[in-house]
């Protein structure tokens, strides 16, 4: 596994994570992420042959099923009011043009 993380790797990951990193942040992260990833290499010491993964511990006691009934949701107007840009009359969040831009 690559503990030798390149600048291109960091740029690619930043694009996947929708982060527009500055040049300085990219430089810092090349070094720090490599150190953190090499710390994770320790895990390879553990023998995990035939060991199932744990994704959730909530199975300790299963939550009950709820009744399949409708119930009121949060007020749309109040929610749109929290958005940086929105159109309360139309009931929409507003974003920069996506199609044909």
């Amino acid at each position: 596994m690559p503990t030798n993380l390149t600048r291109a790797d960091v740029t690619r990951i930043a694009a996947l994570a929708r982060l527009e990193l500055t040049e300085d942040e990219t430089t810092l992260f090349v070094e720090q992420l490599a150190a953190i990833l090499s710390y994770f290499e320790d895990l390879q010491r553990a023998d995990t042959t035939n060991v199932p993964p744990t994704a959730q511990v909530a199975v300790l006691a299963a939550a009950p099923w709820r009744e399949d009934a409708d119930r009121p949701s949060l007020d749309r107007d109040l929610l749109i009011r929290q958005a940086p840009e929105g159109d309360r009359d139309a009931g929409l969040f507003t974003v920069p043009r996506v199609i044909g831009s």
Partner: peptide, 8 residues
Amino acid sequence: KAQQVRTL
């Protein structure tokens, strides 16, 4: 791998 070690 981490999820498996979580089980251990």
